[in-house]
Design a protein around this nucleic acid. Structure first.
Lengths: 108, 108
DNA sequence: CACGATACCTTGTGATGCAAGATACTATTT
DNA sequence: AAATAGTATCTTGCATCACAAGGTATCGTG
């Protein structure tokens, strides 16, 4: 394990979900936030700082595009590095899931 | 949803694991910490505050017992309320897992 | 008696999830 | 034309928390 799975969990799971979404097509934060809010209860106040962090880490790039229905959207596009990170995070996530299930044991 | 699944994740997953361990038998923090360190990379500095929190929340009770090999151990015993909390947390956890898998989709 | 292992606990730091609010553009209603 | 509602961006402040590092005390062994 490169670093504590716990760290992976905390820093990684939301990032992983966002990267997974972006791997299926470019998207903008507001829409990502809506989807994530439905799926795992994450709001805008969490998404925007997260997107900036991911951009700083080189996992995504951005470009502006007019929308016709509101202010221009800032689209995020996953990078090669982001795709690799996603791959690693999925591996770590599956390992973490397995570890938790082992602890839960026959309680499930 | 009672509260954001995200909060459940953060505050709940480690607690859930500890409660699951305790549901199989009383244990003391040092040993719990060792097991959790192996399983999900959590150390003592995380466990001790967590145990106190859980005690304050009425999820566990404690009793002291001599060990013969070091200082006396403070054993933790899960309460009825703790068992119920564990049940709820497992339900939430499985729902969260399902949500993440849905997002990951065919990427897994 | 010194040392390592066991076992407890505290402090300080850095991240971060989130609610709430600020800003601004467009379309629809009044 | 003014007001409202929806879209979309981002910031601030708060509370929480995992973790590393350090501190204390007990026991057995060399």
């Amino acid at each position: 394990m490169t670093e504590s799975l716990q760290i992976q969990l905390k820093k990684g799971v939301l990032e992983m979900c966002v990267l997974a979404l972006l791997s299926k097509g470019d998207n903008y934060a507001y829409d990502i936030a809506s989807r994530m809010a439905d799926a795992v209860g994450m709001g805008e106040g969490t998404i925007y700082p997260l997107m900036r962090r991911m951009q700083n880490d080189g996992l995504v790039t951005t470009y502006l595009q007019e929308s016709g229905s509101g202010p221009p959207r800032k689209y995020y596009k996953i990078t090669k590095e982001g795709a690799q990170t996603l791959k690693n995070q999925i591996t770590d996530w599956l390992a973490f899931e397995a570890a938790v299930h082992k602890i839960l044991g026959e309680l499930t």
